[in-house]
């Protein structure tokens, strides 16, 4: 799924989505907004490329989607993180930390 992840390191989209939803339930556009916001625009995610990730996470049982109303009065599917998703987030965080350390060591070894 490389093509939708312009600007995002492969495999980190799930981590970002889970992290975003860990704070509060959001709909797809909201998740994209939030990722852009917390990375201060480093990562721009189009809602269209978010949908496969959201559905993959839902299929895995890490998040759960429900229809609800936005504050502006539109209908939207809000995703919230599940207990399994919380655990997965923790595991991916550890994993990411290891990668960061490992990559850092490789770079410093130069």
């Amino acid at each position: 799924m490389g093509k939708q992840q312009t600007g995002i390191i492969k495999g980190t989209l799930d981590l970002l989505v889970l992290k975003t939803l860990a704070l509060e339930p959001r709909h797809g556009v909201g998740v994209a907004d939030r990722i852009g916001q917390i990375t201060r625009g480093t990562f721009q995610v189009k809602p269209g490329s978010l949908f496969p990730a959201l559905h993959r996470l839902e299929q895995n049982g890490f998040i759960h989607g429900e229809w609800s109303e936005t504050p502006e009065g539109h209908r939207a599917k809000y995703y919230r993180i599940t207990a399994a998703g919380q655990r997965q987030l923790a595991a991916e965080k550890r994993n990411w930390a290891r990668i960061v350390v490992a990559i850092g060591q490789v770079l410093e070894a130069d």
């Binding site: 709909h27 797809g28 556009v29 809602p47 229809w67 539109h74 209908r75 939207a76």
Partner: peptide, 15 residues
């Protein structure tokens, strides 16, 4: 459901 979801996203952005 997917159609609904995409339409909802489009509506939100358009608004």
């Amino acid at each position: 459901e997917l159609d609904d979801e995409i339409r909802a996203a489009v509506d939100t952005l358009a608004a």
